[in-house]
Design a binder for these strands. Structure first.
Length: 790
RNA sequence: UGAGGAGUGGUGAAACGGCAUCACACCUGGCUCUGGACCAGGCUUUCCAGGUUCGAAUCCUGGCUCCUCAGCCA
């Protein structure tokens, strides 16, 4: 479980796939791409990658790997004004560090500029694109609003020749920025704003970080992205939810320029993490305003920051696997990330001792000058690893200030006056005397005795009375600076700000606490930068990659250990003021919805009836003559096709109530986007099906089976019934045998049922129904089932 | 008041008409030379209202709430 990537199960054999893998699997099964799976991760090189990108990287590269495909790394570099080679390099380093490999599939949209230009020309020739000469402001006005349709540009009707000429001259640099723009001929009245003549190419006299001054026109995302996908033969183009509306352009463009099988776009919910921000703009702001020490500040959610903080690629991948992927907007709590990191580090970080806030201990019965070298394992018993080092014990040692209490609370397991505690991998000491600073009254030294026989001895009896604490020899300790990091913001959602405030007002003033004069066990004196350890009873730490050197050690706290010690926790730990309780989100959703009058009708159907006297009349008839409920009558009379279907069916079999229910529920459900006329059965067929039920020829359950076949277009009701033998009924003996077989197949469930889990009756019923094709009738099945189960 | 999405414990997900499941968090207890890890147990869930069905988180109808879209950013 620690490394889900190492041996990914073949997705075909796995259940509970996320919706994206389900789609890929489906496409593979039906052979849409001949078994090819090509995904892509398409960053724009205008900033650093963050943990949200990590989710996307794990998804795209993960899917490719699991399905035996490839994932391209493509830089969507179509905006010369913000992009830079340094970002390209940083992004490649981050993706690689996360453990993914794009093989030789490194691409740049900027390499496609010539081909993209040709596609634009083709669109113009096909009269599907035109050069618009409206100003930026005019374009905005012509676009309309979400409530009002837009207006067509007066330049929309330019001739192909004129468009071609203008577009060529745009490229040639004859016009200043903004003078003209290439647009697709969408639909200015489209309800989807994205389709109101989307912008394809803009003039931008700017130097591109890769193409220099080769171009002065640049493709827009909506144009470059789908075409780049198609050029690369991408199969599944996976992006975040905010691009859902853009999919219309994606499809429009590719349908016009590429035959199937062409790429298709799917969207998932981007990651939101509590207590941090994820937008590039805000991250950039933190860096530029010096609110953090750079993109790789260990408090930043950037990959670079997490790496410097000490997070592992394996831990991040584990996190990504655990949060899964869906289309619901969500906020993941920090604990999920932190636990994944801990889970990974637990098995790979050797245990060492560090005293962060030293308190001197003199062991009075230990000879001055004597050094005992004690063997101390690097790993606890439960970790399957070998290795140990020798630790020097001397008369003067340091322990953690927080491991001593003069007036301990109940349940205290550390040192207290007159009490005993084990020095880890060493002797038990007893606190005999407390030395205080006469001026301040604070404890400055403990005078203790040690028990020379204590190795192997227990400090506690049945219930533990004390724990074992870390220590270092005063004469041997290596000094270090230790940086304790905490969450960057004080609130779960820093972007949720009241009037007049910004997310920066939620910055945690105590997000870093720098401790100097920390003392580490001597072996750490030469710890190489980037090395990770568990400082026993503190947490996981890493020698800072940038600042730590032998002789001037600097450690970053990656993550604290879980701490189940409750009493006095707030005072004892390094945590900044405990984060305020997270306010309940989506409070509106928790509210009871106002009661709605039952049977309210739909406005569109009411309007349809208002405009169609026949429908209105039928609504009245259905209620008063046929005795249907107003809701049912409403559903049936909102559309002439539905009403006609129903009328035709009732004419064949006059059980209005049953036919209405079948029409409103099963037929509507079975439509799946089709219209009634596209159905492969007639109203008379449906009527016949209902008649078979009413006659007692088949059960309702069997009728559902028959209906499924009818939807699939494989015959008339009677034929299906005959073919499946559904009218044969089931003898008592046959039913009994079927039930016995089902129960015999799941003895554990039977036992649970008898033990009181009666909700299992549905499971048994379902199994028997399935086994008998619904011939028996659920009441009979359940009755007999109950008798057999006692 | 348009279009497109989405609502399952505190958090993220699963269940594809039949057992509401998993991970994290939280609470007990056990074990421990880390108040870690581990082990055992527990706590909490289908947005609302109708309907269909023997049976609904799932299907039908209506409602509510949230997110996205009116950049020559991506």
């Amino acid at each position: 479980m620690l490394n889900p990537e190492s041996n990914p199960p073949a997705p075909e054999d796995r259940e509970n796939l996320d919706f994206l893998r389900e789609i890929v699997k489906r496409d593979n099964l039906c052979g849409l791409y001949g078994g090819r799976v090509v995904t892509r991760f398409p960053p724009e090189p205008n900033g650093y990658l963050h943990i949200g990108h990590a989710k996307s990287i794990c998804l795209n590269f993960g899917i490719a790997r699991e399905f035996g495909g490839v994932c391209h790394l493509r830089f969507d570099d179509t905006n010369p004004e913000t992009e830079d080679m340094k970002y390209v390099e940083a992004i490649m380093r981050d993706v690689r560090w996360l453990g993914f490999d794009w093989q030789d599939k490194l691409f740049f949209a900027s390499d496609y500029y010539e081909r993209l230009y040709e596609f634009a020309v083709r669109l113009i020739k096909d009269r599907k694109a035109y050069v618009d000469s409206l100003s930026e402001e005019e374009i905005r006005q012509y676009r309309g609003t979400v409530m009002e349709p837009g207006r067509e540009s007066p330049y929309r009707s330019r001739s192909v020749e004129e468009n071609l000429d203008l577009f060529a001259r745009m490229r040639a640099g004859e016009f200043p920025d903004g003078a003209h723009i290439l647009r697709a001929k969408g639909d200015m009245g489209a309800r989807n704003m994205k389709m109101r003549d989307p912008l394809l190419y803009r003039i931008r006299h700017a130097t591109h970080y890769r193409r220099g001054d080769d171009w002065c026109i640049y493709p827009m995302y909506d144009f470059a992205h789908p075409l780049s996908d198609a050029i690369e033969n991408v199969t599944h183009s996976i992006c975040t939810l905010e691009f859902e509306n853009n999919r219309a352009i994606y499809d429009w463009l590719l349908d016009n320029l590429f035959p199937e099988p062409r790429p298709h776009q799917y969207e998932f919910a981007r990651l939101n993490l509590d207590f941090t921000v994820m937008s590039k703009r805000k991250l950039l702001q933190l860096v530029e305003e010096g609110l953090v020490a750079g993109w790789d500040d260990p408090r930043m959610p950037t990959i670079a920051g997490l790496r410097r903080r000490g997070y592992t690629p394996e831990g991040i991948r584990l996190f990504a696997a655990r949060i899964g992927v869906d289309k619901a907007n969500s906020r993941v709590s920090m604990e999920l990330l932190e636990d994944a990191i801990r889970d990974d580090l637990n098995a790979r970080a050797p245990r060492v001792m560090a005293v962060l806030r030293p308190l001197k201990v003199t062991i009075t019965n230990y000879p001055a000058g004597k050094v005992d070298w004690l063997d101390a394992p690097y790993w606890p018993r439960d970790i399957d690893k070998e290795g140990s080092r020798l630790l020097p014990l001397t008369r003067e040692v340091y322990i953690e200030r927080t491991d001593f209490s003069e007036n301990p609370p109940a349940g205290w397991m550390r040192l207290q006056p007159g009490g005993e505690v084990r020095l880890l991998s060493s002797y038990i000491i007893r606190c005999e005397e407390i030395v205080k600073d006469p001026a301040t009254g604070s404890v400055i030294e403990l005078r203790c005795t040690y028990d020379p026989d204590s190795p192997g001895k227990s400090t506690g009896t049945k219930r533990r009375k004390s724990t074992a604490i870390q220590w270092v020899s005063a004469a041997h300790a290596a000094p270090a600076e230790v940086r304790l990091y905490d969450r960057l913001f004080t609130v779960a959602d820093p972007e949720d700000v009241p009037e007049g405030k910004t997310f920066k007002d939620h910055l945690n003033p105590d997000s870093v606490n720098i401790l100097r004069g920390c003392l580490l066990e001597p072996g750490l004196a030469n710890a190489p930068a980037g090395e990770r350890f568990q400082f026993v009873r503190h947490g996981y730490f890493i020698a800072d990659a940038a600042d730590s050197r032998p002789g001037a050690l600097v450690f970053n706290r990656i993550i604290e250990l879980r701490d189940t010690y409750k009493a006095g926790k707030g005072a004892e730990t390094d945590k900044a003021a405990a984060a305020p309780a997270k306010p309940a989100r989506r409070p509106e959703e928790r509210k009871e919805a106002a009661p709605v009058a039952a049977g309210r009708t739909s406005d569109v159907r009411a309007r349809a009836r208002a405009a169609n006297a026949s429908l209105a009349r039928r609504y009245e008839d259905y209620v008063s003559v046929l005795g249907l409920s107003p809701e049912l009558a409403d559903v049936l009379t909102g559309d002439a096709a539905v009403a006609d279907f129903f009328d035709a069916a009732v004419a064949v079999h006059p059980n209005a109530r049953a036919v209405a229910n079948w029409t409103a529920n099963e037929v509507m459900s079975g439509l799946k986007g089709r219209t009634l006329s596209e159905l492969s059965f007639t109203p008379a067929d449906l009527a016949e099906l209902v008649r078979l039920i009413d006659q007692g020829t088949i059960t309702t359950a069997a009728a559902k089976t028959v209906f499924g076949e009818m939807l699939a277009g494989v015959g008339k009701p009677q034929e299906i019934v005959a073919r499946l033998g559904l009218d044969k009924g089931l003898s008592d003996a046959e039913l009994s045998a079927a039930i016995d077989a089902v129960l015999a197949a799941m003895p554990d469930k039977v036992e649970q049922y008898r033990a009181g889990k009666t909700s299992l009756l549905g499971l048994f019923t379902g199994q028997v129904m399935r086994a008998t094709g619904g011939k028996a009738g659920p009441q009979a099945v359940q009755e007999l089932l109950k008798r057999k189960l006692g």
